[in-house]
Amino acid sequence: MTYIIYIALFFMIAGLTMSAFRFVKGPTAGDRTVALDTLTIITVAAMVLLSYVFQRIIYLDVALVYAVLGFIGVIVIARYLEGAL
């Protein structure tokens, strides 16, 4: 069972690395916004995994709050890029 957790952590670190690369290199603002959204989603998944690893139910609340608020932040940036804010 612990091997599955290590494999999941490896893929999360790989995804974070690739998203950070796209965030630094991305030529347009849309690339960087989508990279921020991807980083948020991967980090929320990592928080849920850590909630299982540490057997703490309160860690799920942080993941829930971050999922909702990260969506709002990305929506605000998208509205600014659209020119309608």
Partner: peptide, 28 residues
Amino acid sequence: LYAVIATGVISLILSAIFLLLQAPDVAL
């Protein structure tokens, strides 16, 4: 605008570090 998005990334990773250091209220 890119600097502001990078600030969001800093806040995201800092929240994950607070969670790993077992302070979920600070992360919230």
